[in-house]
Write a protein that binds this DNA or RNA. Structure first.
Lengths: 327, 327
DNA sequence: ATGAAAGCGCTAACAT
DNA sequence: ATGTTAGCGCTTTCAT
């Protein structure tokens, strides 16, 4: 690997001039520029980001933290982020945390280390204190998930309202026995969606039955199957399910079909996220669509503004209930 | 952010000693070590990776290139990589290329830049010349996909054999009219699996019919639906499908169901990859399982060995035909 | 056991 | 328009 020194030497100029050529300063004569560029080409020289970053103390790298890449929900968000940051000269690196505090700490450290300029986190706040402390000194925004106490700027949807509308939709269809398939309530969205579910029930005079609220721990299809199995073991069986993720809804659907019951005639079902799978099931899934691409773009704009020292406000985007065959 | 200088100053020692404490050198007295550690704690000091990397010229960061994170096939591979590299003091950054040469170039440059120590690529070789040139000077291994001309070490399965076995399975079930739903043949696995498909047909005296080989361009469910639609427009209709990805197979299944045909009675169907969703469909999908986790571990071992200057050999892992309800 | 000092590759302030 | 030089934060060699 050649260095700026070698380029300078062979081009017969100083390193400063080479640096000027690389950084497109306009105070270099055409002739010099061409000579330097020729040498750069010949030596196959590439400026070391390490040296540059150490000097400028910026890396133009953004970290995107996500619990797991196997949830297709994140894909579109990432596309939005990617498209937005690239146009601004940044790049993103995806960091899978598994919601594991140790892994999270590694990525947090990359920020303190100056290896990255900012973090877009889609992770529930595993290490809350650390995050808040970090966010005070470094650019961090939350996307989709966020910290309820609210010191960190975020972009998200109104999860409570979305869940409320989904459940109200079921109730208006005549459903009275609606179970909730929820995820781990360390996720804020899980807590919010439960609230929306409960609010809808209360509003229509339906009882909130603890035994009809199922908590899955991992976001896997199998957990949706398990949920249905468990809920159907009870004497009083629900006739409708609201799942906080399409992943669970798809698992639930599989189990309902396996029991010989028909959706939506015997059992109604609503999911959340409108992942692409949700349109491949039989029947297709009623679900809540989030503006994922736009959410990604927004998060990207926010983090870049933050890096530039601007104040950024949290943003709530619109969602939409997409009614398909399962209700 | 505090620096090593400040720590040295407050601890009343030289920066060299602080460095020794950080790097756990054993030539520091207990007493000094404790004093320095106390100051590090107090100042909330974190060594700058930038300074360190510039000095040691290593980053302990590995890049993992993948075409798209929305294909669940990659998830398990990444888990394998992650688990392996962490134990060796490395970290990975996921880079979504969209098989776009420009994006790929960005990540290639991170390697030349010394921002990363090595690349595990699951991308088809978009920019072949560049890759080969790079691989000559930097640690790169291919995982799953690879370069047929073979200068870059890789870990993969025998795609041709796997496809052959899948199709043979259909033939032994009495199927004579088997269509292939393939992906873009810039992917080597697409070319190999087609070869396996053709080999099986030839071996059992069945004709290879060009019009029964469908090429989808993007890896989306919809393409599987389209494939079936297209293939069914023909006068001579296939009665079985071999799809080179579960994604296509799932789309195909949806379309077959929509036509009122039954799987496997009317139409038989085999997929590839054994993604988790392939067990959620009705009926469940016969598919080819790859040892994804192990593939990830192997790729990780290979790249680390390469970084350490060792010679590494390409490796072929075993696959397995998983027979389920769709055949 | 510890310190002084060089230097990794680069940018930018200052000098010419 | 170009060169000289300091210094970003760290590790490591060589002295002491």
């Amino acid at each position: 690997m050649s260095t700026i020194q070698e380029v300078a030497k062979y081009a017969g100029v100083s390193v400063a001039t080479v640096s000027r050529v690389i950084n497109k300063s306009d105070t270099v004569t055409e002739k010099t520029r061409l000579r330097v560029e020729k040498i750069i080409e010949e030596l196959n020289y590439e400026p070391s980001a390490l040296g540059r970053n150490l000097r400028t103390s910026e890396s133009r790298l953004l970290l995107v933290l996500l619990p797991s890449i196997s949830n297709p929900f994140y894909s579109e968000i990432i596309n939005g982020i990617q498209d937005t940051v690239i146009s601004q000269g940044y790049n993103i690196l995806l960091c899978e945390t598994d919601s594991n505090p140790e892994r999270e700490a590694i990525y947090f450290n990359m920020l303190r280390n100056r290896l990255a300029d900012g973090i877009i986190s889609m992770d529930p706040t595993v290490n809350k204190d650390k995050l808040i402390e970090l966010a005070a000194n470094y650019p961090i925004v939350h996307c989709s998930e966020y910290d309820e106490d609210g010191t960190v700027a975020h972009v998200t949807i109104n999860n409570e309202l979305a869940a409320y509308q989904a459940v109200r939709h079921l109730i208006k269809l005549g459903q009275k026995n609606i179970a909730l398939i929820n995820t781990d309530e360390t996720f804020l969205y899980a807590r919010e969606r439960r609230r929306g579910y409960e609010k809808a029930l209360l509003e229509f005079g339906l009882p909130i039955r603890k035994e009809w609220i199922y908590h899955a721990d991992k976001l896997e299809f199998q957990r949706g199957q398990q949920a249905v199995r468990k809920l159907f073991q009870q004497d009083d069986k629900p006739t409708a399910f609201f799942a906080v993720s399409d992943i669970y809804a798809i698992g639930a659907l599989k189990e309902i079909n396996a029991k010989g019951l028909r959706v939506p005639d015997d059992i109604a079902l609503v999911g959340f996220d409108k992942i692409s799978f949700s349109n491949m099931t039989y029947p297709t899934l009623t679900t809540v669509a989030q503006p994922m691409y736009r959410m990604g773009c927004t998060a990207a704009d926010m983090i870049i503004n933050k890096i530039c020292g601007k104040e950024v406000e949290s943003i709530i985007l619109d969602h939409e209930l997409v009614i398909r065959e399962s209700t």
